[in-house]
Design a protein around this nucleic acid. Structure first.
Length: 581
RNA sequence: CGGAGUAUAGCGCAGUUGGUAGCGCGCUUGGUUUGGGACCAAGAGGUCACAGGUUCAAGCCCUGUUACUCCGACCA
């Protein structure tokens, strides 16, 4: 491709709106064009990079036995009603009516469409398992789009859906997809980890996230510094550190006056105690049954130095949760926040205690009276026993900073990352909703079980750029680079153009894609632009080099320059092939 | 949806006490250049986000609206 005939609108200044390096560079190097918040178009150069990412995904998916399809981007509301997800997605879905007032949504994910496909097309176990995928645009009315294409309203996802007669078959495909994902992200050149994750809006059981380590990521990973333990922060577990030793030994509860001490740290300081001997009380509400909109109060207690993990709690209850409204708080307690606890309540609601509180004694807790706290609290005696069936212990806390690994007791590290892939065992949630059934070998009808597997395609591209750049611009790994080489002609003399043209043609014959910078620009402009757009290798032709029948090869990543003879083109081409493979 | 900020040429920005719109880069034309964002000359380009108000006079002051960005909640 001749640069002069191509379209790469580069910019010298970073647009003020971009925060991330990848976002700035994608704009500056002319990969993307912002249409509006969360809406980006791909310009020719960016599209080539995107296509290369897609090709790697496609290759590995096909190799793992998945089969490509294309399904509509519009999803009839009827399908979402059948799965019950019309309500789950709430306002995240872009929805509208067609001319006959039939409800439609723009595809945010496609479980329903694929489940319906199987419902209509498959009736025998002989046709299973099947694993279908597509690479398609997804639409989500994000609460807050940000970071360019990292989180946008419209994005490209590879989504796959597999259908199976039993759990073993699902597991086999799940593991094949897991391996395919490892291959894909390795091939993309990303520094990633895969961790157990919570399944979010998709529903289901096992799931693993693929996360690229990056300080700008929105996900938090918990990794053990010694053993192989790793998990998403939302799912991570830790060894509970013992509470701070105490010398007091009250035999029973005692109410003490604690004027204006309405936070854990104030109370602990006031009582010369410690937050690890405090009981933190939070009041939430949870939905009685999914989407019933009937909310029940719920008291959560944690050790003073722990924080609630809402995701763990939601998974535990299998229900939506929200902070209690002032009215429902009033219905349970008759005192201000800061002095609450589940001790001696008249009509206690359900109480869930974090496992950090197990066996805690000599603790302090609110006395349910303004300016008073209890001391000498014993979890078992004062909370667990009196509450009986209303009470239970569960792990509902976030992993603390510097927490110890539950496997090996070594330090857990928290690392930021970008989620680029997610695989799930969905189970029968959708197949039941769609009353999917196939006949098994005995002629009995059974409900297939499902898996689904997603990759953020353009997010992966952004992650690649985020981790492959320097002060001069993008540094594309060869397998992603829109052009493997650039040919920079310096000078306008006929012999320079002639030599450049000959070399350009040879590269074409060798299938080494090349962007020939034939523009009438000064050398500086060409060097800067080629650096900015990140082409891995540059060949330079100038009168100075031609005088000795040589050209120069420059390596973008290292800045290294090699002078090579032009009279041995096959050696030159062999060298390029070697460096690009 | 809560909180914060921004809005002036394609991009980055300045604009004093309210007095008729500027800079750098980019763009166009002509010429000279060609190893790291060249030089000279001449140009083009603006509803100062939008609406209303105050004023003899508003980019600037006041009110409202919109868009964008950031933080939070949410989320493959």
């Amino acid at each position: 491709m001749k640069y002069s005939k191509y379209f790469i609108p580069t910019q010298r200044n970073s647009p003020q709106e971009a925060l991330l390096n990848s976002h700035k560079l994608m704009l500056r190097a002319g990969l993307i064009h912002k249409v509006s918040s969360g809406l980006y178009g791909y310009l020719p150069y960016g599209l080539l990079a995107l296509r290369n990412v897609e090709a790697i995904i496609r290759q590995q998916m096909n190799k793992a036995g998945a089969i490509e399809t294309i399904m509509p981007l519009l999803v009839p509301a009827e399908l979402l009603q059948r799965s019950g997800r019309e309500k789950v997605f709430k306002r995240e879905l872009f929805r509208f009516l067609d001319r006959n007032d039939a409800g439609l949504a723009l595809s945010a994910t496609n479980e329903e469409t694929f489940t319906q496909l199987i419902e209509k097309q498959i009736s025998s176990y002989k046709q299973l398992p099947v694993n279908l995928y597509q690479i398609a645009t997804k639409f989500r009315d994000e609460i807050r789009p940000r970071y360019g294409v990292m989180r946008s309203k419209e994005f490209i996802m590879k989504d796959a859906y597999s259908f199976h007669v039993d759990a073993e078959s699902l597991h086999e495909t799940y593991m094949a997809m897991r391996q395919a994902y490892i291959n894909i992200f390795t091939r993309l050149g990303l520094d990633f980890v895969h961790v157990a994750a919570s399944s979010g809006a998709m529903g289901g059981q096992d799931s693993e996230e693929f996360i690229v380590k990056s300080p700008v990521g929105e996900e938090t990973l918990v990794l053990c510094s010694a053993c192989s333990y790793k998990a998403n922060l939302e799912k991570a577990i830790q060894q509970i550190s013992p509470p701070k030793a105490t010398t007091s030994s009250l035999a029973k509860l005692e109410k003490v006056h604690t004027p204006h001490q309405d936070t854990i740290s104030k109370v602990a300081a006031f009582l010369h105690s410690h937050s690890t001997r405090s009981i933190k009380t939070l009041v939430y509400e949870y939905e009685k049954t999914a989407d019933s909109n009937v909310w029940l109060p719920l008291i959560l207690i944690l050790r003073g130095d722990f924080k609630l993990n809402e995701t763990k709690l939601e998974a535990l209850l299998a229900s939506n949760i929200r902070l209690a409204s002032p009215e429902s708080l009033e219905a349970v307690f008759h005192c201000p926040k800061g002095y609450l606890s589940p001790i001696n309540l008249e009509k206690p609601p359900r109480v869930i205690a974090d496992i950090s509180l197990k066996n805690l004694s000599q603790a302090c807790a609110g006395a349910n009276e303004k300016d008073y706290h209890f001391i000498g609290v014993d979890m078992q005696r004062d909370i667990a026993l009196p509450l009986g069936d209303l009470f239970s212990f569960h792990d509902i806390s976030l992993v603390q900073e510097n927490a110890a690994c539950s496997n090996c007791s070594e330090k857990l590290l928290q690392v930021k990352g970008i989620e680029v892939g997610h695989i799930f065992k969905l189970g029968k949630k959708y197949s039941r909703a769609f009353q999917l059934s196939v006949q098994n070998q005995q002629g009995k009808k059974i409900t297939p079980t499902m898996g689904c597997y997603g990759i953020g395609v353009n997010r992966s591209l952004a992650a690649i750029i985020e981790s492959n750049n320097d002060q001069h611009g993008i540094i594309f790994p060869p397998q992603i680079a829109p052009f493997k080489t650039a040919l920079i002609s310096i000078g306008t003399q006929p012999e320079i153009l002639q030599q450049s043209s000959a070399l350009y043609d040879r590269l074409g014959q060798e299938n080494i894609s090349c962007l020939w910078d034939d523009r009438l620009e000064s050398p500086g402009v060409k060097f800067k632009d080629i650096d900015l757009i990140g082409i891995p290798l540059s060949l330079i032709i100038s009168s100075r080099l031609l005088a000795t029948q040589q050209c120069e090869l420059k390596i973008r990543r290292t800045g290294e320059r090699l002078t090579l003879p032009l009279n041995n083109i096959s050696a030159l081409l062999a060298k390029l092939h070697a460096m690009l493979s």
